[in-house]
Design a protein around this nucleic acid. Structure first.
Lengths: 98, 98
DNA sequence: CCTATATTTCGAATTATGTCGAATTATCGA
DNA sequence: TCGATAATTCGACATAATTCGAAATATAGG
């Protein structure tokens, strides 16, 4: 997972999927935010093939989910993924981090 | 930070510095655990120069602190570092993760 | 069925990273 | 001051990652 997030483009993609609201605002975490591939690549200035490669890596690392919906492919992050990441950092011993 | 933790050896070094007790056991987080460079490299099967390089990278990323103490150089992880990592993952908006 | 749109796969070129050994610096004790 | 120990710096090499463009695949709509 850390390897997947090590790349600036992939980190930006992942971050875009985890920050649904304006910065500093909390939103309902029970509902996963979905974006299709094209949307995610906006403003990143990379070729579609590169974008596809990065999303594939994020998916392979278990960081994002992907599902076709018509012409598009939707991407989202499961809340469990974030929990798993944080629990690794803080150790599985504590009930909740900090 | 993610880039620094992307390497298996560096992740192992970092993990060794954050897990002071037996796995699944919580220890006092207010006191930073310290190890010198030689200790950290034990069992990792890498050349001393490689070990040094990795610790330098972890330090450059702000993940570990280093300080000379006699012939050895001590390494440790500040609790703030772990907090910063987790707060990035969950967003700075929430008071506490999850 | 044909076309436009969305995305992926593949192959090749460039760049970055991990690794080591040899040489170097730093510190302590005899 | 000398030698041993601990760690770093440097240069070189092999491997891995990033990126693109061209071609391929999938889907919706006419």
């Amino acid at each position: 997972m850390f390897k997947a997030l090590a790349n600036p483009h992939r980190l930006a993609l992942f971050h875009r999927l985890t920050t649904c609201c304006a910065p500093g605002t909390a939103c309902n975490p029970s509902e996963a935010l979905r974006h299709n591939v094209g949307e995610l690549g906006e403003g990143l200035d990379i070729a579609p093939s590169t974008l596809s490669h990065h999303l594939k890596e994020l998916n392979r690392a278990g960081l994002i989910q992907m599902q076709r919906r018509g012409k598009h492919i939707e991407c989202w992050v499961e809340l469990e993924t974030l929990e798993a990441l944080a629990s690794f950092i803080f150790g599985k011993s504590r009930e909740r981090p900090i």
